[in-house]
Computed example of a mutant assay.
Amino acid sequence: MGTLDGRVAIVTGAGRGIGREHALLFAREGAKVVVNDLGGANDGTGTDAGPAQQVVDEIVAAGGHAVADTGSVQSWEDAEALVRRAVDTFGNLDILVNNAGILRDAFIAGMTETQWDAVIGVHLKGHAAMLHHAAAYWKGRSKAGEKVNAAVINTASASGTFMPNAGQANYGAAKAGIAALTLVAADELDRYGVRVNAIAPIARTRLTLATPGMGALFAQEVPEGEFDAFSPANISPLVAFLAGADCTLTGKVYAVQGGAVSELAGWHDVNTIESDGPWTVADLAKQLS
C-alpha cells in the first residue's frame, strides 16, 4: 500500500529534474500521474515531447499508471485541457503539483521586456492558470455535494523568499508571488476541501547548474555511497507527504534541501515607530536614520 493509493496527480515540468522525481515517487506511492512537460530549453524556447513520454514509459514499465501531456502551463487553454486530461483519463483529480519553470537571468538595468515576461509567464501565470482550472473543478465537485480531499503543492524558491539572488529579479519576483499566491489560495480553497502549500527547494537541476555563482557548487561530485545533499530526489518525499489524503497542513511554505526541511514565515514587523500626529519629513528622518 502506498501513501497515494487511488489518488490522481498532475505534475507540471515533470520531464526532468525535481518534477521527474516527483512523478516517479508519486507513481511508486500508488498515484496515477499526468506527466506534463513542454520539453523546452532552460529559457523556455522550443518543444520536445520526449522528456514527458520517457518518464511515462519509466512509470508504466514499473507497473504504474501515467500519461504524458506537453501543453504550456502559461496558456489558459492548455491549463484547462491539462485538468480535463487528468479527469478524462483517470476519472478524477486529487493533486496538483506546480513545478514547471524556466530561467532568463539578467541584471535589472539590462533586462529586456521579453526576459521579464517569459519568466513571469511560466512561473507566476503558469501557477495561476493551473490553480484556477483545478480550483474550478474542485469547487464544482464540492458544490455538487461531493466530499473533496485535494492538495496543491506550489514551487517557490529561496530566490523569492529568504535568499534573493542578484541577476534574478524576474525569477525572484515570480517566486515571491507564488509564495503569496499559495497563502491566498489556501485561505480561499479550504471551504472546498482543498489544501494549498508550497516548497522552496534547493537541488541540482539543469536550471541551478546554469545559475551564475551556483553551478560549481551543485556540480560537485559525490563519492559513491555517500549522501548527495543536492539530489533532486531529496525534495519529493515532502511533496508526497503534503499531497497525501491524511495530511492536514495548509498555507505553509517549506524550504527543503538535502535532509533539512524548514518552515518559512513571510514579512513581519521588526521595528515600529509611532507619532501622536502627522509625520513630518524631518521627524521621519530622525526616527528612521
Rank of each mutant, 00 (worst) to 15 (best):
G2H: 00
V8P: 00
G19M: 03
G19H: 04
R20W: 04
H22R: 05
L24A: 08
A27I: 02
E29C: 02
A31M: 01
N36W: 02
D37H: 00
L38I: 07
D43L: 05
G44Q: 06
T47P: 04
Q53D: 03
Q53R: 10
V55E: 01
V56D: 06
V60Y: 10
A62T: 07
V73S: 08
Q74E: 14
E77V: 13
V83N: 03
R84N: 11
A86Y: 00
D88T: 13
D88H: 07
T89V: 08
L96S: 01
A100Y: 03
D105A: 01
D105H: 00
A109S: 09
A109R: 12
G110M: 05
T112K: 04
T112E: 05
Q115I: 03
W116S: 09
W116R: 08
A118M: 13
H123P: 05
A129S: 15
M130S: 11
H133M: 07
H133L: 10
A134E: 01
A135Q: 09
A136L: 14
Y137L: 09
W138D: 10
R141K: 15
A151P: 09
N154H: 06
A156T: 09
S159C: 11
S159Q: 12
M163A: 13
P164R: 06
P164S: 04
Q168V: 02
G172Y: 01
A176D: 04
I178Y: 01
A179S: 06
T182C: 00
A186I: 02
D187N: 12
L189I: 07
L189M: 11
R191Y: 07
N197Y: 06
A198P: 04
I199A: 01
A200E: 07
T205E: 05
T205Y: 08
L209G: 03
M214V: 11
M214P: 09
F218N: 10
F218I: 07
A219M: 08
P223K: 12
G225S: 08
G225K: 04
F227M: 03
F227N: 01
D228P: 02
A229H: 11
S231E: 03
P237T: 03
A240R: 12
F241Y: 14
F241M: 13
L242T: 10
G244K: 06
L249F: 10
T250C: 07
G251Y: 01
G251L: 01
A255V: 08
A255G: 15
V256K: 08
G258H: 12
G259E: 13
S262M: 12
A265S: 14
A265K: 13
W267Y: 14
H268K: 15
D269P: 12
D269S: 14
N271K: 14
I273V: 15
G277V: 11
G277Q: 14
G277I: 11
A282W: 09
D283S: 15
L284S: 10
L284Y: 10
A285R: 15
Q287F: 08
